[in-house]
Design a protein around this nucleic acid. Structure first.
Length: 419
DNA sequence: TCTGGGGTCCTAGGACCC
DNA sequence: TCTGGGGTCCTAGGACCC
């Protein structure tokens, strides 16, 4: 059996842990630059605030209904996630961390020795009492069915208490009949549209389609999903491997046409790429650099361009990465446009330890030492060390007007309780 | 005025090899 | 007039996820 454990309204719940006055109140968390709604508490969902809602369009509704609004605080969410996953790891040796707020737990043979429903409740209790985060648990013979079970556990939490098990064919059939086709894991907008056109409205109807047909129309991905959903174990637990691509892409707070402004930002993104690469002990060989104008401004000239540039040698040195990224930028930058966004994607990642020697070019070995020191200093001093290409004086900042403290990772930002 | 960010996998088609 | 067969590797684009 598999369990899918999912944190309820994760980002909103993280904010609540450190501000209990928010219990039973509507809470939303915004994306970078305080742009869109990316997390909502149940109360906020009940107010029909959709996922992805632009904050400026909903400002009035927030004010009128006393919605508590937060900028996203990834330092906090990332750390809380780690804590939750550590606790879940105590319940099985086989765990796949599927996303920041979700994990699959393989409970192979556990049903012979445990009452799985009781086991699920123990998970809820442990996570809640040790982190304050509420979770839901779906248990079933396959991953796709565990997803369905989880949805039921959450949707009917008053009745299920947050745990739901699918373990017999008739029960599974009912659950699949209840699951709308667009809500199935792996069925997105496009597939939903195509299936609805065929009058396939729920997961049970999807499962009854012929294998060959599903394979032809939705590729092997769709077929695997269909089999898993019908109860045949097809998708198995995957180790959480290192990332194969690493990206830093951000919209600017304003539009810029000046090359130097772009240069400064692209440098900063390249430095961030370097930090991420070093954290997972990888080098990269290829950088993709892109720039974009504001797609929402129909009145302005539009331009988008992207280019791939190889690094001289596999590297995670911020110095080399900045140089490479700027080479790319210089090739795609065009004067006369109002740029709103830029980004860098690093790919062709290799383990930092297996460095391939080059015949003619070799990176200065001092880079490695230097980066180590820079990383240590930045961790201790909170990002004080910058590179020449980055803006040293006038620090530009993404809009984060409603940022909470990094309660769980910074001593000077601890929660303070007044007696 | 304002509209996110970061990932994975699969497929088709082109370039290349012998 | 006629012009093979069988591969691999890479990339872009499109689907999906949270």
């Amino acid at each position: 059996m598999y369990a899918l454990v999912d944190c309820n309204n994760f980002y909103a719940s993280c904010e609540r842990v450190f501000n209990p006055l928010l219990e039973n109140k509507p809470v939303v968390v915004l994306s970078n630059n305080d742009g869109c709604v990316i997390a909502r508490s149940n109360e906020a969902k009940a107010m029909d605030i959709p996922m992805g809602a632009p904050a400026f369009q909903f400002q009035k509704l927030f004010d009128k209904n006393g919605v508590h609004v937060f900028s996203s605080n990834y330092a906090l969410y990332g750390d809380m996630s780690k804590r939750v996953m550590n606790i879940l790891s105590e319940f099985t040796p086989d765990i796949e961390i599927y996303s920041i707020d979700e994990a699959f737990l393989l409970l192979a043979g556990f049903e012979e020795h445990f009452d799985l429903e009781y086991y699920g409740r123990q998970m809820i209790l442990a996570v809640k009492s040790r982190t304050g985060i509420p979770i839901s648990v779906g248990i079933a013979p396959t991953k796709a069915l565990a997803k369905v079970a989880n949805k039921i556990a959450k949707k009917f939490s008053a009745r299920t208490g947050g745990v739901y098990i699918l373990d017999d064919p008739e029960k599974n059939r009912k659950a699949l009949l209840w699951t709308k086709i667009g809500d199935v894991w792996g069925i997105g907008r496009q597939y939903e549209k195509r299936l609805l056109a065929l009058n396939i409205r729920n997961a049970q109807q999807f499962v009854e389609l012929h294998d060959e047909y599903v394979r032809k129309e939705f590729s092997v991905v769709g077929l695997r999903l269909k089999r898993d959903l019908s109860g045949l174990t097809t998708l198995s637990l995957e180790a959480t491997p290192k990332k194969k691509n690493i990206a830093v892409t951000r919209a600017f707070e304003n539009m810029y046409s000046d090359y130097n402004e772009l240069k400064e930002r692209v440098s900063t993104y390249a430095v961030k790429i370097g930090e991420k690469l070093r954290r997972q002990e990888s080098n990269c060989s290829l950088l993709q650099v892109f720039v974009l104008t504001n797609q929402f401004r129909n009145d302005l000239k539009q331009y988008r361009a992207s280019i791939s540039v190889y690094t001289p040698t596999p590297t995670n040195s911020s110095i080399t990465l900045v140089q490479t990224a700027l080479t790319g930028l210089s090739m795609i930058y065009k004067e006369g446009y109002q740029y709103k966004k830029a980004g860098i994607i690093a790919s062709k990642l290799t383990p930092a330890k297996q460095k391939q020697f080059k015949l003619f070019s070799e990176e200065n070995p001092k880079h490695e030492q230097l980066m180590k020191v820079v990383d240590q200093l930045n961790f201790r001093e909170n990002g004080k060390v910058k590179f020449g290409g980055q803006d040293l004086g006038r620090t530009w900042k993404i809009k984060q007007e409603r940022l909470s403290n990094r309660f769980s990772t910074r001593l000077n930002e601890l929660i303070i309780i007044k007696v």
